[in-house]
């Protein structure tokens, strides 16, 4: 009886020490789950999910405060990837947060721009160039299409232009066959 107790206590001590050692030795910096969720999010930084950016939304999902279907730019594919990562059932996008749109970039009508810098302050990825009273312009390759610059513009000179299909970004289509009537 005593020996059995001693064995159990001893085992507990050894395993506890091992676990303690492992937690120090293999400590992970930061929250790996937030990083993994953030890696799936499209980084549009548009805030349509109700959080001030992709990372805060990722943190909210990790904490269980936000649902996985609040990101319209990520689309259904994004929801599926999140569901896959978190081991939950995928669900349709919550349209209260918006609907997926074709990928667009912001374009400033340079004739109208008054150089107020409000859009520059709104841009989450610093993709707008310009200075006070100088005409502004969008770096198209850096623009995430978040639309956050559209509302602040006092002269409505920013429009969202869908990215056209060109020879360089053209994609092969999924093979589809004409359906013949069942005879």
């Amino acid at each position: 009886m005593v020996s059995a107790l001693l064995v159990m206590v001893g085992l507990g001590l050894v395993l506890g020490a091992l676990l303690g050692y492992a937690s120090i030795k293999f400590r992970v910096e930061g929250d790996p789950l937030v990083d993994k969720i953030d890696a799936i999010l499209p980084q549009t930084q548009c805030g349509q999910c109700g959080y001030p950016g992709c990372r805060p939304y990722a943190a909210a999902i990790a904490k269980g405060e936000a649902d996985i279907n609040q990101c319209p730019p990520g689309g259904e594919a994004g929801v599926r990837a999140l569901a896959d990562l978190l081991g939950v059932e995928p669900k349709p996008l919550n349209t209260a947060h918006g609907v997926p749109k074709p990928k667009s970039v912001a374009v400033i009508d340079e004739n109208l721009c008054i150089g107020c810098t409000l859009c520059i302050q709104a841009c989450p990825v610093d993709a707008i160039l310009g200075a006070a009273k100088q005409m502004h312009t969008v770096i198209a390759s850096e623009c995430t299409g978040c639309e956050l610059c559209v509302a602040p513009c006092p002269v409505d000179c920013i429009t969202m232009v869908p990215i056209p299909e060109t020879v360089s970004n053209w994609k092969w289509r999924y093979p589809v066959f004409e359906i013949k009537a069942v005879s």
Partner: peptide, 27 residues
Amino acid sequence: RYAKSEIIALDRAKQAANLARERNQLR
């Protein structure tokens, strides 16, 4: 061909997302 061009497009989107994340963090 379809799968290849989808994968290439996804990789590009991933790159763009990484760039956006980096720029957002810098900002």
